[in-house]
């Protein structure tokens, strides 16, 4: 268990969650000026839109080892229901993301949209990491943060596209965040992981 936590770099995950909350409290209200076409209310994008990427990066790093290295062969068991690795990973992911999101929502004052943003980016990154590798996972989340930030306020369905922004529909954003996390957790449990059989190394048992 301790070795598994070390393999998942649990220390880094905790540090990332704390860094996220600290930065959100300290600099979350810093605004980036954008043309009036974009932005939340008056042509600004708040930095806290992008801060959950810290947690997302930690998640991508934590689950990079899955399917590679020493865990590749044991991870096969994860294709069978309720394997040890899958259940532990899904548990860590869900509780960690919920805790990080809760801290952002409560301690940092991010509210529902803060929680939704953390869940959304964590889920997307985790699913992307499992299906296509950590770099692709974090790239998908970065693009989501970027494109939703500059999606014009007067464009169709802007309230629903602004998943990570305060002017988005909170219930919808939270629903999407939870759904994305559940999909990622499902991928972890069922072990449908990306294994580079031919390009990289696989581990053993």
């Amino acid at each position: 268990m301790i070795l598994w936590l070390r393999a998942r770099r649990a220390g880094w995950l905790a540090a990332a969650a704390l860094a996220l909350v600290a930065l959100d409290r300290a600099a979350g209200e810093l605004s980036l000026s954008v043309p009036a076409l974009f932005g939340t209310t008056s042509g600004v994008v708040f930095l806290d839109t992008f801060l959950p990427l810290i947690w997302a990066a930690a998640i991508a790093d934590a689950f990079t080892g899955r399917g590679l290295g020493t865990e590749a062969r044991p991870a096969l068991l994860a294709r069978l229901p309720a394997s040890r690795l899958g259940v532990h990973d899904a548990g860590l992911f869900l509780t960690g993301s919920a805790a990080a999101g809760g801290l952002v929502a409560g301690v940092a004052g991010g509210g529902v949209h803060g929680l939704a943003a953390v869940l959304m980016l964590a889920g997307l990154t985790c699913a992307g990491t499992l299906r296509a590798g950590p770099a692709a996972g974090i790239f998908a989340s970065t693009l989501l943060a970027l494109l939703t930030s500059v999606y014009p306020r007067n464009a169709p369905a802007a309230r629903f596209v602004h998943l990570l922004q305060p002017d988005g529909e909170p219930a919808w954003a939270l629903g999407c965040g939870i759904a994305t996390c559940l999909v990622a957790a499902g991928l972890l449990v069922t072990g449908r992981v990306h294994v580079r059989l031919y390009a990289t190394d696989v581990g053993a048992l």
Binding site: R6, R9, D201, V202, G203, A204
Partner: peptide
């Protein structure tokens, strides 16, 4: 038991 071609070192283990 199976030993692959390349054995990967674990993360700091």
């Amino acid at each position: 038991g199976w030993m692959p071609q390349d054995v990967q070192p674990g993360r700091g283990m």
